[in-house]
């Protein structure tokens, strides 16, 4: 029961973050079209670190589905799924080397890069045109910065959770 509740809460949190992000006028600070902060990835990272891969997959899948139904439009579903799942795969793999070889920074940046690559890959498949790859370098550079930002937020959150035993209290383990 606790698990269902927690997963439900995290899905709504990811949705809210994905929605809020649309109102941050990032274009005013960095004039690059199509870049996002990727705040919803903080939730995916949390799920991956504390609840395991099945939870992370469920949360990501439902977040993408609901976000597309509510505000993205159906055309965005395939792109967000491609990005989110490639990011999830990359982060799960990088997490194998945590904390010895990779920190949250590398995992988050790798996730951001995989997310961008997934979306461009899907775009080139859908449009049957490889010209869109010309846009990937900008997204990759932006991903290093946004990946670092979400890593800082995640790392601080995680250390607060661990200091206050928040996870054990909620999770009941």
């Amino acid at each position: 029961m606790r698990k269902i509740t927690l997963n439900g809460l995290l899905i709504s949190l990811a949705l809210v973050l994905a929605f809020m992000e649309r109102f941050i006028p990032l274009n005013l600070f960095v004039p690059l079209p199509g870049i996002k902060l990727g705040l919803a990835n903080i939730v995916t990272m949390f799920a991956l670190f504390y609840l395991g891969i099945p939870s992370a997959v469920t949360i990501t899948l439902l977040r993408c589905l609901l976000a597309s139904f509510l505000f993205g439009g159906m055309s965005s579903l395939l792109y967000s799924l491609a990005g989110a799942f490639l990011a999830l795969v990359a982060m799960s793999l990088l997490k194998l080397g945590y904390p010895k070889f990779f920190s949250v920074i590398g995992i988050s940046m790798g996730g951001a890069a995989a997310h961008n690559a997934g979306q461009i890959l899907m775009a080139s498949l859908m449009m049957r045109n490889t010209a869109v790859f010309a846009y990937l370098p900008i997204l990759l550079f932006a991903g290093i910065v946004t990946g670092l930002l979400t890593a800082i937020v995640s790392a601080n959150l995680f250390s607060i959770f661990e200091k206050t035993n928040f996870i054990t209290k909620v999770w009941g383990k």
């Binding site: 070889f101 920190s103 010309a134 990759l140």
Partner: peptide
């Protein structure tokens, strides 16, 4: 404390930058 840059992180950044440069040069 979790935010200490590890060797793997540097390799991830390097990999991303190199991939980006490779695509930039080839396009």
């Amino acid at each position: 404390m979790r935010l200490k840059l590890k060797l793997g992180d540097v390799l991830v950044i390097l990999g991303i930058v190199l991939t980006a440069f490779f695509i930039l040069v080839s396009t």
